[in-house]
């Protein structure tokens, strides 16, 4: 965990949460829980940034994706925030290793744009804002604009290129280089060079699991020392590849000091997450959590955080973690 990693999250009136406290957050966090239980909302709340312009930019992009996905045209901002009122306000409280911050926002829908009354207060906080959208929503999938993201995030930077190669090498040990080919059809494609092979192969020939993981690795390298949020992280990953997938992702997050928040519904995803951590050892295990969002009978939602020891024991005793 580093200084910019979130250690606890407190939401007030954010989307379906009246109050939600998520405590004891680690560097690697797998969120579980029932459908409509708030997992995605927790990911979205973590888009919060001290500067309104940056937070607004991210919210607008998420709202745009939401609008496209749902087809909702009228009052979509209120629908997105799960509120009926003409004005809405919410608070996102975030604690870090050395400091805390509270973000208060009142929102008005002015023809689909957010008009804000944004206040931010922080206590001894060293915070690095991240302009790009550090969130992969489920409904967009991993494959969306992979080449563009590579070109935007990695291509120009030699250090990021090296880190991406290092991370990809955990699943493709003979990888030599990655090149964007701008001349192919109307959209450029990525080419993967391998040691001992003269011709580079298009990324598309490597299979969905590899491509999905590759997409995620680009994000991890780009959001170095920050955090990324991934909805339904296991989608498109064959179960027999799941452990290798987790080994690659966790190693990349560790190498790039990235805090990971991911959701799943899948028991196998949880099982292989634990198995990968078992293989990676104590340094990784100490920073791993499973956060279960449980809806109680009174309809309130509460977050239950399990440490590696807790969830390993739960898996061993066939306790439901989803």
């Amino acid at each position: 965990m580093n200084d910019t990693h979130v250690t606890s999250l407190h939401l007030t009136n954010f989307k379906q949460f009246e109050q939600l406290k998520v405590e004891n957050i680690g560097q690697f966090n797998l969120l579980t829980g029932d459908n409509n239980g708030g997992k995605t909302s927790v990911l979205e709340s973590l888009l919060v940034e001290p500067q309104w312009d940056i937070f607004n930019l991210k919210l607008q992009r998420v709202l745009y994706q939401y609008k496209r996905f749902t087809g909702v045209k009228k009052n979509f901002i209120y629908q997105y925030f799960n509120k009926n009122s003409e004005k809405l306000s919410f608070i996102i409280g975030v604690e870090f290793k050395h400091g805390q911050a509270t973000f208060k926002l009142k929102v008005e829908d002015t023809n689909g744009y957010l008009k804000n009354d944004y206040t931010y207060s922080a206590d001894s906080l060293k915070y690095k804002s991240q302009v790009d959208l550090n969130y992969i929503p489920f409904y967009f999938g991993y494959n969306h604009s992979i080449t563009q993201i590579y070109l935007d995030f990695i291509n120009q930077y030699t250090d990021k290129d090296e880190k991406l190669l290092e991370s990809v090498s955990t699943m493709l040990s003979d990888i030599k280089d990655i090149k964007a080919d701008p001349d192919t059809c109307d959209e450029s494609i990525l080419l993967i060079g391998r040691k001992g092979m003269r011709k580079r192969m298009p990324l598309g020939t490597f299979g969905d699991g590899f491509i999905n993981t590759f997409r995620l690795l680009i994000e991890i390298v780009h959001f170095s020392e920050h955090r990324i949020m991934v909805d339904e992280i296991d989608s498109g990953i064959y179960y027999k590849r799941m452990k290798d997938f987790w080994l690659t992702v966790l190693k990349a997050c560790h190498l790039n000091k990235v805090q990971l928040f991911a959701t799943t519904h899948n028991n196998e995803c949880i099982k292989y997450y634990q198995e990968a951590l078992e293989e990676l050892g104590k340094e990784y295990q100490d920073d791993a959590r499973i956060i279960n969002l449980h809806r109680h009978k009174d309809n309130s939602i509460k977050a239950y955080t399990s440490t590696y020891e807790n969830f390993s024991s739960a898996l061993e005793t066939e306790t439901e973690l989803r």
Binding site: K302, Y304, T305, N310, A314, T317, E318, T319, E320
Partner: peptide
């Protein structure tokens, strides 16, 4: 629906804090 949990020894109950809390929260 998790009417019961196995703790694998008496000490394993310490690993069931979340389940104990959830259950109490559910009345």
């Amino acid at each position: 629906n998790q009417t019961y949990y196995i703790t694998k020894g008496f000490g394993g109950v310490k690993q069931k804090v979340n389940e104990l809390e959830k259950s109490t929260g559910d009345g």
